[in-house]
């Protein structure tokens, strides 16, 4: 006797609001948002989570998560999150930041949040460009990469080299979990989700500062189709930004999720 059973393999996470996002078609911000929402659902954290949105394309992130949210000044999300977490240590607090926000104007705040071992989770979107302002050079822009403010390609003699935030933050003793993942295909997206899960697990266990850097695409400002942009992440970004676990505190290494 054989009977068929219908399973729901995937549905929109509860922590995601019923709102059409303002992101461009194919932008991986949506993927990153969705993964965070899925992890928060799976861990049952929605009712105690406070998100901190940045300035940049994800400035309206608070519209897309069904949870308490605050909106920080440009780069200051880790400081704002510190303020929240220090007075509400039992709540879950995360920031969601782009590369201009985290690695340029907010580099002091992120380094010191990690240095203090703030028990926060940071989701870091690295798409090597300023999206919201229309495609200017970011601290993470690749050498030679053309942007509206590096129209002849990023000249490292004049504009310096890309900042590698996962590598930098892994040096901090206060960091508990620092990894880099990519969102360019399904298998990497699954790995990214597992990393986000571990980052939130680190926070729930009080294991210190956690950050997941996600290599992301910006089809609009890279002037590519959504699919071409994912190809650019794989071919051009991965060699500059190697994926990997840059710091995993021993207590987390044993955890299976």
């Amino acid at each position: 006797m054989v009977e068929a059973k219908t399973e729901v393999i995937y549905q929109r996470p509860e922590s995601f609001t019923d709102v059409h996002t303002h992101y461009c078609p194919g932008c991986t911000h949506g993927v990153a948002h969705r993964l965070v929402a899925e992890v928060i659902d799976e861990m049952g954290l929605r009712e105690k989570t406070i998100g901190v949105a940045p300035v940049g394309c994800s400035v309206f992130a608070y519209n897309y998560f069904e949870m308490d949210f605050v909106e920080a000044a440009h780069g200051r999300a880790p400081a704002m999150a510190t303020g929240i977490k220090r007075v509400l240590p039992d709540n879950t607090v995360f920031t969601y930041q782009g590369d201009g926000d985290l690695a340029s104007i907010g580099i002091a705040e992120i380094m010191h949040a990690a240095g203090r071992g703030e028990n926060l989770t940071v989701i870091f979107i690295n798409n090597a460009i300023y999206g919201m302002t229309g495609g200017q050079m970011a601290p993470t822009t690749l050498p030679g990469m053309k942007t509206t403010s590096s129209p002849y390609g990023r000249d490292v003699e004049l504009a310096g080299y890309p900042l590698k935030m996962a590598e930098l933050l892994a040096q901090m003793e206060g960091s508990g979990y620092i990894v880099r993942r990519s969102l360019h295909d399904a298998s990497n997206i699954r790995k990214a989700k597992k990393a986000i899960r571990l980052a939130f697990e680190a926070q729930e266990r009080g294991l210190g500062f956690s950050m997941v850097e996600l290599l992301s695409s910006c089809p609009t400002n890279w002037s590519m189709s959504a699919q071409e942009a994912l190809g650019f992440v794989e071919e051009k970004m991965l060699p500059v930004y190697p994926l990997g676990d840059y710091k995993v505190t021993p207590a987390l290494q044993e955890l299976r999720v």
């Binding site: 006797m1 054989v2 009977e3 068929a4 059973k5 219908t6 399973e7 729901v8 393999i9 995937y10 549905q11 929109r12 996470p13 995601f16 059409h20 996002t21 992101y23 078609p25 194919g26 932008c27 991986t28 911000h29 949506g30 993927v31 969705r34 929402a37 295909d185 399904a186 997206i189 699954r190």
Partner: peptide, 29 residues
Amino acid sequence: GCGICAVVCPDAAITVYRKTPQRQSRKAA
């Protein structure tokens, strides 16, 4: 119903269903 489309979808626009054949429980059989 592998769900890969939903995994890559940036807008969580896709719901995926799968119909899997199930043997009746061993006891019943």
